[in-house]
Design a protein around this nucleic acid. Structure first.
Lengths: 201, 201
DNA sequence: CAGATTATTTGTCGATCGATAAAAAATGGA
DNA sequence: TCCATTTTTTATCGATCGACAAATAATCTG
């Protein structure tokens, strides 16, 4: 273990790359943009991160481990499906509209339209979105088994519904719809779940 | 009025451009792509349509006048807000998942992440989405005034809710969620409106 | 100190981006 | 028939794309 020590903070550079990709997407952020945003020469970026694509994947990982991890956190920490869903949506609204931060969801908007040669990235993000949908559906199925929701509840339809809403929230946030209106919209959306709650003793 | 007659079908070329932009987005579709898709040299494209951006705007216009015009059509043709909303969502699902056609909504996905120099296009599409939201909210407000919906209904929240869902449906369709599941999800979403319907004599 | 290792600097690579100039070809009108 | 007009053909433009090679500099080990 030797060699010249790195002169820049790799984690800090990764954060800056995350924000750039989150704001403008993968193809919307050029290497020249990254050079000026990170403040280091392109050869240093390649030495530290491998390629633009590698950097992007690492940036998405950082996003999902922090700001974008609200779904995972809600699923892990909330005791009921009702609370999982509401917390997930409320935190999504907050994250998507945070002042001074990139708007919307990085996983939804960073690679939606891109050239053929980057289809792998597009598919990679799509798989992340589908996985999130699956985890929501599974949690709702669990709630049906537990008796939290009525036995005849269509958990998949309900899960698809909240997943679609989550993705729609991202588009709305990017369009500049204010946080308060998004919260009001979530309130409307929670009725679908409340209508399926079982009467408990 | 003279000059050499055009040798290709302009409308047909515009349709092909629409499909290309719809599939891969504005920046994801290069001039080289357009040349091979339309089957004509780039100089001819510029002569007929002005620029890549002009061609894109014209292609979006074509989309909104046909496949993408379901919201306008539903608003103009259906007698009740209930029927407007359901027809709009059902037709959206059909349009977004049509076999052999580009998936999702062109207005939602053709310019979500792009470079700084194309921010005008991004903002232009965002304005289209916001305008659609406004027209939905206005229709729901009208329904409250008409007595179709309960007097204490928050029409804006409800309109924002259906707009968000519409945008989410586009993302889901692009992710390959099958049509049937999207219809089931729409069924769940219709409950929010039904809960606001007034009891009529 | 010398040698191995890693980072930084500097310059540049071939490919592709959107766009156009100039010349040739095909029409209608006088 | 000849001219004005428009399209097509052909070739190419400068800018930018992502990526890297080679030389230099800074560290640890022995």
């Amino acid at each position: 273990m030797a060699g010249r020590p790195r002169e820049f903070d790799r984690d800090q550079a990764l954060e800056k790359a995350q924000d750039a990709f989150w704001t403008r997407g993968y193809e919307g952020t050029s290497m020249a943009d990254l050079v000026s945003t990170l403040g280091i020469a392109s050869a240093r970026i390649y030495a530290a991160f491998g390629s633009k694509e590698d950097l992007f994947r690492e940036a998405v990982g950082l996003y999902e481990a922090n700001e974008g991890g609200f779904a995972t956190r809600a699923l892990a920490q909330e005791p009921t499906a009702r609370r999982v869903i509401e917390r997930m949506l409320r935190e999504a609204v907050e994250t998507y509209t945070r002042p001074g931060r990139p708007q919307g969801c990085m996983v939804v908007s960073a690679a939606t339209n891109c050239a053929v040669e980057n289809d792998r990235l597009l598919e990679w993000l799509a798989e992340h979105r589908r996985a999130r949908t699956v985890s929501i559906v599974e949690r709702l199925n669990e709630a049906v088994r537990d008796g939290e929701l009525k036995p005849d509840t269509d958990a998949r339809a309900l899960g698809d519904y909240y997943a679609a809403l989550l993705h729609g929230l991202s588009v709305q946030a990017r369009d500049g719809v204010p946080k308060e209106r998004l919260h009001d919209l979530v309130t409307v959306a929670m009725q679908a779940l409340d209508a399926r709650r079982a009467e408990r003793s």
